[in-house]
Every structure is written in structure tokens, then in C-alpha cells.
Design a protein around this nucleic acid. Sequence first.
DNA 1: TTATTCATGTAATGGGTTACATGATTAG
DNA 2: CTAATCATGTAACCCATTACATGAATAA
Lengths: 182, 182
Amino acid sequence: MSLRHAVLGLLAVAPASGYELAKHFEYTLPRVWHAQNPQLYPELNKLARNGYIEVIERGPRNRNTYAVTDAGRAELRRWLTEVEPDRTMRSEVYLRAFLLPLTLNSDDALGVLRREAQVWRQEADSLRAMLDRSEQLVARGDAHLLAYDLNLRLAEAMLGWCEEAFQRIQSRDGASDALDRT
Amino acid sequence: MSLRHAVLGLLAVAPASGYELAKHFEYTLPRVWHAQNPQLYPELNKLARNGYIEVIERGPRNRNTYAVTDAGRAELRRWLTEVEPDRTMRSEVYLRAFLLPLTLNSDDALGVLRREAQVWRQEADSLRAMLDRSEQLVARGDAHLLAYDLNLRLAEAMLGWCEEAFQRIQSRDGASDALDRT
DNA sequence: TTATTCATGTAATGGGTTACATGATTAG
DNA sequence: CTAATCATGTAACCCATTACATGAATAA
């Protein structure tokens, strides 16, 4: 499991509180890694007990800001460079895309694909706009841009697939219509 | 959770035993949905008790071949067309890609990116070869091709990102080298 | 007849989600 | 002073993984 390394990684990018991490997972990483409050707070305490992170500031409302320690940074580096990634995935989006053309009739499939294409087109557009804006503000080599770029490429892949699937199903349908008419 | 619908969907494509489903998840769907034996057999029994699937054949070695019932097909259609998808993801691959440029030094990052690009290039190549072969065997409208096409597009997106990230990190590095030299 | 593959499962453990609880601070 | 937001957490439940168990059929 990699929640441990997800948290460690985010804190290596910038110190944060549990509350901020939760927002981060919800708004900036929803297509990458997902985690909520009841996982985060116990995990932060565990990482702190093991010496990978530490509280660097106590704010109002019991706010604890955590940062990675040297040991944490070393562990993160070890994980990224030496541990063979688990490349299996479990994505409802991909599962639906897989099943849709295989199990739905053409009308249902085309309807769902039209809606899905819309979602990914919007996501791709807003990521592209964000990247355009950012490239004027920060240095072109800024590593944050690469994170957006990954999301953009995945959204574009989904959009491209939706459009391809739509066309193929439509022409398959057209072909059978044509056959029916002869 | 969608294990229920993953199983229902696979059985809607073609009847199968639990053993065959496990192989399917392992070899044809590893980048889509992941499930193993100890989940599958209880889930199959539950789906059968609820009337969504049924045993259509008992083979040697206690082999049970399951197929979806009309109720199962209706439930699958309902899920695909009416239930709003959960578009959050939890992918170790994406998480690593996100963290890599933000937390590793250039040398480490370039090394890992080179290895990763290799993996996705191979996956894309073999999927492309499989698609080329298939298109000569089956009708172009065959829905199975779309499943391969999705995997291909995602692999190409990962490969494209790896190459882009490699170049940006290299040129960022080159830039700082150039500055050092002056 | 020995090893391999097919085939189905259970038990123990660990990870993740939903629902709930509590209280401090800030904005209107 | 009221509502919204910030902030941390626990309890109960469900889902997923690892390790183990069992035995039938097939290939060498």
C-alpha cells in the first residue's frame, strides 16, 4: 500500500497539516490518489512515531503542521528509485469504458459516451488553461507543471477514446442499418 | 464498490468460471480492475444468491461456469447508464509520476524515467501489434478492439509524459549547468 | 508416479469508507 | 450571535490481500 508514501511525498513537496493534505487529495489529486480524514490522521501519527515526519508548527485550533525528516526523505527516495512499482490499477472509469462497448446496445452506449466525452473535454480544457496560465508565471522547468501535464495527457487519452468509440459504434450501427435497408 | 459490476460485466461478455475470471483480471484487465481468488468466489456466490448470475454448467474438478441472468443484465445496464461514475482513482503509477519530478534530484529522476518509459513503450508496442493482428481477423466494429484501444491510449499517454518529463528535467539541468559554467 | 495446472475455497489481517463526535476560529 | 469553516479525531463496517488448505485432472 502506498498511502504512507503518498503522504510522505506530499509533505516532501511542502509542509502541511492533516486538514490541508485532505484538501490536496480531494482537489488536486483526485485522479491520482484518494484519501480521507479517517485514514490521514492515524497515518500521520504513525509516520511521526516512526520518525519519518515531525510537527514543525502548532497553530490555532490544534493545528499541527508536519514536515518530512531526513529519514522520511531517504525512505521516499528509496521507494521511488528502488521499489518495483505495482502497476495494477482499479479504476471505475476504466472499468466502465471497458464494459460499455461490450455489453450495451448502440443507443445506450452512444448516449453514455456523449456524456463521458463532455466530462473529459471539460477537464482537458481546464487543465490546458491552467497550464497556459502557469507557464507565464513560473519557470518552464517547474516540476509542478509536469503534474498538471500528466493529468492533461490522461484526460486527453480518455477523451480521444470516447470519440473513437463513439465513431466506431455509430458506423457499426450505420453498417447494420444499411444492410437492413438492402 | 464495483467488484460486483466488474464480475457481472465480464460474465455478460462471456460465461466463465471463477478460475477463468481470476485469469482475466490478471492478464487482460490488470490496468483496469484487479481482483483475486479470495474475493471472487464469495462474490460469485453472493451474486448467484441474489439472482444476478446462475450456474449454467458443472464441469470436472468442481468447475462451475456462471452466466448472467436477465436480472443481472438489467442491473449492469442500470449501473452503466444511470449511476454517476466515481471518477476518483488510486493508482500507484500515477502517484509515482506525480511525486517523481517534485521530490527527486535530476539524476535519480532521469534514471527512473528512463526505466518507466521503457515499460510503457513495450506495453504500447505490444498492444499496437495485437490491435494490428486483430483488425485483420475480426470485423473493424468489434467491441473487443475498443478495450485494447483504451489500454493503448493510456499506455501512450504515460509514455508521452515520461518522454516530456525526461526532456524538461534534462533541459532544466542543462540550464543550471550552463549558469554554473559562466 | 510425480509435478503441474485446474479449481474452489477459508482464516487472519490490514486498508478504506461512512457516520459520528467535538470544539476552536472567523465572517457576516 | 449565528453560520460557516477549520481542525482533529473515533467506531463500526466493508473491502482487499496474504497465507493457507484441499483435492481432481492432466502431462511428462
